[in-house]
Simulated scan of single mutants.
Amino acid sequence: MSLFSDNIRALRVKQKISQEKLAENLQITRGRYVKYEDGTSEAPYDILKKIAHYYHISIDLLLSVDVRKINMQDLLELENNRLILPIQVDAAGENFIEVVTQKVKAGYLNGYADPEYIESLQQISLPFLGPGKHRGFPVEGDSMPPHESGSIIIGRYVERLGEVQDGKTYILITKNEGMVYKRLNKNKQNSLVLASDNSFYPNYEVKLSDIIEIWEYKCNIGRSDKKQELSETESLRELILEVKREVLELKENSIISSK
């Protein structure tokens, strides 16, 4: 037996449909379907896709989450037949914000679809953020100043790729890169260009097929109160202004001397 077998049995029983009727909807024989449900045979991708569409649930949830432990009515439905886990709210009806701390960051790639993992995360509430599903992610490194390593970026879940705006910053959860916080651009077909605000780090591309989740930057939670250093653009502007001031001073001195 497997979690997938338990899930499809539980979903079928909940909807009060027979194995024969379900097999007919999947366009396979009852005997073939029974093997998936009793765990003696693994369903190929085309069958997984058909089952997912039939129950209006994503394949990753079918394979990795015990659907008997969650209320399917509370799942957030997205485009392309995808669902994400229930949104928890506080007593006032505000969305809880799960915070993925540095300590548990490594497990997020495997646990993002696991209700028990999500429920184990620390939670906060920030009512001023407005509607949408929000989650906090840790910043690591110096690629995105002024956000320092150790601070937390609060992001809003992006339901559709069309919502991504060129030049804005997002947290991406990807199969190969893991968790990254970058400035995005959609000027590549079938991929996104990721850019760091620190020019020391080069841009790179991530295929759309490698992206698991996208969270739009909403606010930052940090502890540092040190003065923000000037950016390269600001430094250049200051340098130009300083040169102009020196040129004016030289002109004024020259005029005074000539008198």
Rank of each mutant, 00 (worst) to 15 (best):
Y112Q: 10
P86A: 12
Q27W: 01
C219W: 00
R135V: 05
Y204A: 00
L78C: 08
L250I: 14
N7K: 04
Y55K: 06
M144A: 08
T233V: 11
R9C: 14
Q122C: 04
E229G: 14
T174V: 03
E37P: 06
L192S: 00
R68I: 04
K227R: 08
L239I: 13
T233W: 01
D90A: 07
L172G: 04
I255K: 15
P131K: 14
I173C: 02
I124D: 11
Y157N: 06
Q165H: 08
D6I: 06
L241R: 11
F4I: 03
N220H: 13
D60F: 02
E246N: 13
Q189I: 12
I255G: 06
L83F: 09
K227T: 11
N190I: 02
G222I: 01
N81R: 03
L75G: 02
N187I: 04
I97N: 13
R30L: 11
S235M: 03
S143Y: 05
E252I: 11
Q189K: 06
M72K: 06
D46W: 04
R160D: 15
F96S: 08
N95Y: 14
N25V: 00
N187K: 05
P138H: 05
E140R: 10
S64W: 02
S196W: 01
H147C: 01
G136K: 05
I221R: 01
K69S: 08
N110L: 10
K35V: 11
G136N: 10
V100M: 08
I171W: 10
S58I: 04
L75S: 00
E216C: 03
S224Q: 11
L248A: 15
I255M: 14
N253E: 15
L11T: 02
K259T: 09
S257V: 02
E177K: 12
M179V: 14
G132K: 09
R30V: 14
L161R: 04
Q102Y: 04
G31N: 13
E37W: 00
K14V: 01
P44K: 09
Q15G: 00
P86S: 14
D60Q: 06
G167E: 02
A91W: 06
G93K: 08
V206H: 04
E205R: 03
E163W: 13
K50P: 00
A52Q: 05
Y181L: 02
P202V: 06
K35C: 09
Q122I: 11
K168W: 12
R82K: 08
M179S: 03
L121F: 02
V180S: 06
E24Q: 14
Y204R: 12
R237L: 13
I8Q: 02
K186L: 06
